[in-house]
Amino acid sequence: MEVQLSGFLSSAAGGVQSVELTGETVGELLTSLELRYPSLRDAIEQGVAVAVNGEIYRDRRDQPIPPGAEVFLLPRLAGG
């Protein structure tokens, strides 16, 4: 699937905007992303969020990614 990167995650991956990856869950996706771009390890370790079809997942690594889903990697959010 095509995973889109944004913000500092894109620059940490050397400026790429999108990357072709495999994975049936958010967790599998992040693992394969880290293998491809070791420079993203710190960012992933500190927390990222993954938008699957527009819904943002911060923590649930077991979240399934349906085939054809739009997947977007975002910085982890903070709140008040």
């Binding site: 944004s6 938008a51 739009e70 975002l74």
Partner: peptide
């Protein structure tokens, strides 16, 4: 969305 993903 301006920050990337498509809205539900």
């Amino acid at each position: 969305a301006s920050y990337g993903p498509i809205y539900g």
